[in-house]
């Protein structure tokens, strides 16, 4: 019971630690020498966006499988171990989607040609061909999309990825706020981790749900107060570094021949997807 009541303390601390750990491990992978790590972030992001468009637009399960294989291949050429990549791409969202897709297999959700029929009490149930196809394409689409996103996330330093958004004409104010926000997320995560570890060590096992709710609310409010006070100090620090009110985003990207190649291949895949879609009705 005590453990149950105190679960929220541990869970909050664990969430903060795992996000911090993810940030550090992503930066370590992004620093390796690999194909995607060497890519200009603007071209990499644009190329992966085109591949994501393929995953979004295709009507073929086979093409989605090809996209997933392509993302695994890209991961291998980018010094990411296949086991690590499978672990990152198959667990959580695709697995969750698989559970969500299960009811869609049956005639009560997706009517169609039955391939396997059975009875539960008085209810006639059957797995339908259309249901299987719907669930399969849904899961494959989620899997290939998640894989492509994770590939971009793993092979690019976070602050660089945010800067690359300028290529999509995202306003400077947004890019600057995104960059600053990312840094503060790391800072706030560190504060949450420390605070909840301290609560765990001081409070021990005696928190009732009511006290727990008050504790969490006090921490949320405290976090806001701390954040609010922090912004004036940050502004002073920015002014001392030459900030005049106009956001400036440094652009040190340089494209190579291989970057154009990646973008062109992705573009051809998108054109191929649109062409193939004509054969699916």
């Amino acid at each position: 019971m005590a453990k149950k009541n105190n679960g929220f303390i541990e869970r909050t601390a664990i969430s903060a630690v795992s996000l911090l750990r993810e940030t550090v491990s992503t930066d370590a992978i992004a620093s390796r020498d690999g194909f995607l790590q060497r890519c200009d972030p603007r071209f990499k992001f644009a190329g992966i966006a085109l591949l994501l468009a393929c995953a979004l637009l295709t009507k073929s399960t086979a093409e989605l499988a090809v996209l997933y294989l392509a993302s695994v291949t890209l991961a291998v050429f980018s010094s990411i171990s296949p086991f690590f990549f499978f672990k990152r791409t198959l667990i959580f969202i695709p697995l969750f989607s698989l559970f969500i897709a299960i009811p869609a297999l049956f005639n009560v959700v997706t009517p169609g040609k039955p391939i396997f029929a059975f009875k539960v009490f008085t209810l006639d149930l059957s797995v339908t061909r259309q249901g299987v196809d719907s669930a399969l394409i849904f899961c494959m689409r989620v899997l290939s999309s998640v894989s492509l996103t994770i590939l971009a996330v793993l092979t690019t330093r976070h602050h660089v990825l945010l800067k690359a958004l300028r290529v999509f004409r995202v306003p400077r104010l947004f890019v600057m706020v995104l960059g600053m926000c990312y840094r503060y997320i790391c800072l706030l995560l560190d504060i949450i981790k420390d605070t909840f570890t301290a609560i765990k060590s001081r409070v021990g096992f005696v928190t009732s749900p009511k006290t727990g709710r008050r504790l969490v609310a006090a921490n949320m409010a405290g976090m806001w107060l701390r954040s609010y006070r922090l912004h004036t100090q940050v502004y002073d620090a920015m002014v001392s570094r030459g900030y005049t009110g106009e956001p400036i985003v440094l652009n040190e990207f340089r494209a190579r021949r291989g970057d154009y190649g990646f973008l062109i291949v992705s573009l051809f895949m998108l054109i191929g997807t649109l062409w193939l879609n004509r054969f699916f009705h």
Binding site: F8, S15, M180, I185, L188, R213, V216, N219, L230
Partner: peptide, 15 residues
């Protein structure tokens, strides 16, 4: 900072 706050608020587990 408010955006960072909006991000981390989702981490707080409420009993």
């Amino acid at each position: 900072i408010a955006a960072a706050f909006a991000f981390v608020i989702m981490l707080f587990n409420v009993p």
